[in-house]
Each structure stands twice: as C-alpha cells, then as structure tokens.
C-alpha cells in the first residue's frame, strides 16, 4: 500500500476509473497538459489522450453544460471547476439542468456526472479562491454533495461518485491537498455516498464536521481537559445526510457542536441542527451549537484565519456546550 496525499489519491482514483470504464472523461481548464492547477489530473492526458482528458476553453458554463451533454450521450464526465469561486457561471447549468433532468423526464434522461471542485480557505489564496459553498448545492434537490477529508476517503468516495447514476458535486478541501499522507490501497474500493465516519468515539459530546475543519477539531480536542470524552464525526457526504450515525451519537452524548467553514446562516449546521432536534429532542442536554464561518464575505487572506473556525474557537464551543 502506498502512502498518498489527497491530490495523489484523487489522481489514482481518476486513473483507475478511466482505465476501467472508457466512458469516463475528464474536462476542464488546464486539466490536460498542465495536469490541473493543483496537479490533481497530472499524467492523465498523457495516459488517456486529449479526447478523454480535455483542456477546455476558459468557460465554466461551457464546461458544465457540455459535461451534461456528454452524460446524456452515454459518457461519464468528470468536469473540473478550477476553484469554488468560479462555480458562478456554471451554476445555471448544474442547478437548472443537471439537477433536474431525472425528475423532469421522469427518469428518461439522467446525468451521471461528477463535478470536481477545490474548496475552502486557509491557504493564503487570492479572492474567490477560499469559499465554502457546499450548502448551496446541498439545498438543490437532485444533487449529491460530498467532501472527503482524507486520502483514503477521497479515493473511495470519488469512485462511488463516478459510478453514481446521478450528478455528484465532489468538493476537495484545498487545505488538506498536501497536508499529510496516509496509506491508500492500490486496488479499487468504494466508500458509499451518504455514510458519515466516526473518527474518534466519545461519551460526553458529539462534534460533527467535514473537510479541512476535521483537523482543526482534532487539534482542539488535543487541548481539551483529559476527562472530556469527545465523539468526532466526519460527515464526508454533505447530501444525502447520514443522520442515523449522528443521531446515534447524540443520543449517547446529549450534546453536539457542528463545525464548518461556510457562513453560519443557512449553512449545513442549520440543517443538521434541525435534524438533531427532530431526532434527539428528549436526549439533548444543551442547545446544539454551531462554530462556523461568520455571516460575512470571506475576507482576503490577512484575516482568513480570524474568519475560519480555528482550533481555539472550536475548543471554546465544545467547552461551553459541555458546561451548559
């Protein structure tokens, strides 16, 4: 088993799925010869040719819309939008077409497509290269949304996404891209879409997060009193939500803190919080807490760490919730 970082794990999954299924095609800005601006698609064009790993013109609506066409025609497109901030022009195609086709044709036309999008802040990137819009896409019926936080999960989830019969938005947390390596099996495996993962078991409080903040949460947990037992859950799939895993945990702990980079209002924390009180009302010992990005525009990088839910703020959130 090789030790891979997130970039390498995604690259491996892409290569293996392209090898296994000739319908799989990769398209996007700079994904070919350059191997993507984060090198996620490195070497794929060399291996599979420019038809299957295509450098497109600089046009996000074009990328998304033509990927929909490819899917309609029986291909399995994996379009890349270079940064989450550039999803804007592609939004119309994704939301008004890809997400709705199965429903509006009553299953006659479907869009099996995996949209890869680097996401999140914390890497000193320029404006519109640091946002976390996962809730926007989870809100649109007809789209599945995933965000792996580890190389192992990244590979398994990407393979599931590519094989999924419906459109999946696959968010890749930039801050984790090269932050660490772990063992990733060479053979193909899947991690089902819609399954959260309990990272560490605990009895006193549940912390639910996903993407890069998983590591901020782990850091916060290192600095908590030793007798405080935290159950940390990596949601992994943003939609459909694995509420069973969360509810099971909260029924045990009675307390929950949700951590995400996106702004608080109408963020995934709001939905999760609602589901938790619906499912665990009689078990709750404290109001569900949200430690999130603020309800402001994501600041330029000088202030990005003041904006993001970093370890000290998470720690406080956990302590307050446990002392309620």
């Amino acid at each position: 088993m090789a030790e891979l970082n997130l970039v390498q794990a995604i690259n491996l999954a892409l290569a293996q799925e392209m090898e296994a299924d000739e319908r799989v095609v990769v398209l996007g800005e700079d994904v070919g010869l350059n191997g993507g601006v984060f090198r996620v698609t490195e070497g794929l064009q060399e291996k599979f040719g420019a038809d299957r790993v295509a450098d497109t013109p600089l046009a996000e609506s074009g990328i998304m819309g033509s990927a929909i066409g490819l899917a309609m025609a029986g291909m399995r497109p994996v379009p890349e939008i270079q940064f989450e901030g550039f999803m804007g022009p592609a939004y119309d195609q994704l939301v008004n077409h890809a997400a709705r086709y199965r429903t509006r044709t009553r299953g006659a036309i479907t869009i099996p497509m995996t949209v890869r999008v680097p996401v999140g802040g914390g890497i000193h990137a320029p404006e519109l290269h640091s946002d976390s819009p996962e809730a926007i896409y989870a809100h649109h019926p007809g789209l599945k949304v995933v965000m792996p936080s580890t190389p192992h999960d990244a590979k398994g989830l990407l393979i599931s996404a590519i094989r999924d019969p419906d459109p999946v938005v696959y968010f890749e947390p930039k801050r984790v891209y090269r932050s660490f390596k772990e063992e990733v099996p060479e053979e193909e495996y899947t991690i089902p879409i819609g399954e959260a993962k309990v990272i560490s078991e605990g009895d006193d409080i549940t912390v639910v997060t996903w993407g890069a903040p998983v590591f901020q949460c782990l850091d916060a947990m290192d600095n908590l009193p030793e007798d405080l037992s935290v159950e940390l859950i990596d949601l992994r799939t943003i939609f459909p939500i694995d509420i069973d895993t969360i509810a099971q945990s909260v029924e045990k702990t009675g307390r929950c803190v949700i951590v995400h980079e996106a702004p608080r209002t109408c963020g995934m924390g709001a939905e999760l919080s609602a589901l938790i009180q619906e499912r665990c009302f009689l078990h709750l010992e404290a109001p569900v807490q949200r430690v999130t990005g603020f309800d402001t525009v994501m600041p330029y990088y000088k202030l990005e760490l003041d904006y993001l839910p970093e370890s000290p703020r998470i720690q406080k959130g956990i302590l307050e919730c446990t002392s309620y």
Binding site: V257, R264, T265, A286, P287, Q289, R290, V291, T292, G293, F294, D295, T296, P309, R313, K316, G317, E320, C321, S323, Y324
Partner: peptide, 23 residues
C-alpha cells in the same frame, strides 16, 4: 445577528450569550 458575531467573535449561541451558561 452580524454585529453580535462581531462583538463576541463567535457564531455559537452559547458563546454569544455567556449568561445562558452562567459565564
């Protein structure tokens, strides 16, 4: 809602209103 986030540096309701937990 935003000025409260500014003044407390927090998004969590307990963090924004410490009275709730006797802090």
């Amino acid at each position: 809602s935003i000025s409260r986030q500014r003044d407390t540096g927090r998004t969590s309701s307990l963090g924004q209103n410490p009275d709730q937990i006797g802090l």
